[in-house]
Amino acid sequence: MIYPDINPIALDLGFAQIYWYGLMYLTAFLAAYLLANARAKSLNNNWNTQQIEDLIFYGAIGVIVGGRLGYMLFYNLPNFLSDPLSIFYIQGGGMSFHGGFLGVLLAMVLFNRKYNKTFFVTMDFVAPLVPLGLGFGRLGNFINGELWGKVTTSPMGMYIQEQGVSRFPSQLYEALLEGLVLFIILWMYSQKHRAPMSVSALFLIFYGLFRFIIEFVRVPDVQLGYLAFDWLTMGQLLSLPMVILGIYLWFRSAKK
């Protein structure tokens, strides 16, 4: 396979440029909105249009603010400490899923206060809405030619003409597993009323596992490298607690 070398700019208006990566974020939020409406209708669980619109708004703010802040804290801390304003230099890229995840958790706490909902009622509703957005985000990484996998001679590799080597297209692996496969698992499972925490638990377990596995073929961030054992990455270190917490919540939900 040969990397198609897609122009990251989807539309150049002269006075402004629209990037594919930004369009992927917009597509992710739109997909979440449509899925939320479909989910509310199928479950008939007292989610109205106003609540869903606010849910997506709060979630979007959590993703963007948490994702950027998480990247600076988890992956680029020295630069952030030396130049705190660098958090606003978004033209250079840099978003963290784990930071966005924490941002969404905080946003949902604020959302719950407004609508007097319990935490896991909201999170179990939200969990199936997330994976497709993750998949679109990884497609954005692929278009940008970033977050590549390791050099390989495997037929599963993709030849990058600019680099003169073949690499694992880890962005596509993540789009498939963290996006499409995780969506199918959560959407099918959540079509029936389930015990509280169980849908959230499945999200934590499977996302953490998928991300941990893919990190073995993904090149770690150059400013961090491997944290230990010549294979442990920051992505794996942050994903492991998700799996542990997910297993704990699953057993708690089973008791209910």
Rank of each mutant, 00 (worst) to 15 (best):
T118Q: 14
T118N: 13
T118S: 15
F119S: 12
F119K: 09
F119L: 13
F119W: 14
F120L: 04
F120S: 04
F120P: 07
V121D: 12
V121A: 10
V121T: 10
T122W: 12
T122C: 13
T122K: 10
T122Y: 14
T122G: 12
M123S: 05
M123F: 12
M123V: 13
M123L: 14
M123I: 15
M123N: 08
F125H: 12
F125N: 08
F125R: 14
V126A: 03
V126R: 01
V126Q: 01
V126E: 01
V126P: 05
V126I: 14
A127I: 11
A127W: 08
P128W: 08
P128F: 10
L129I: 05
L129H: 04
L129R: 06
V130H: 00
V130W: 00
P131E: 05
L132S: 05
L132G: 01
L134I: 14
L134A: 06
G135E: 13
G135A: 12
G135S: 13
F136Y: 13
F136W: 08
R138Y: 12
R138E: 14
R138H: 13
L139I: 15
L139M: 15
L139F: 15
N141A: 02
N141W: 01
N141G: 10
F142C: 09
F142K: 04
I143G: 07
N144S: 12
N144R: 15
G145H: 04
G145S: 11
G145A: 10
E146D: 10
E146F: 08
E146K: 09
L147Q: 09
L147E: 02
L147T: 03
L147F: 04
L147N: 12
W148S: 11
W148H: 14
W148Q: 04
G149A: 11
G149C: 08
G149M: 11
G149V: 07
G149I: 13
K150D: 06
K150L: 15
K150R: 15
V151A: 14
V151R: 13
V151G: 03
V151C: 01
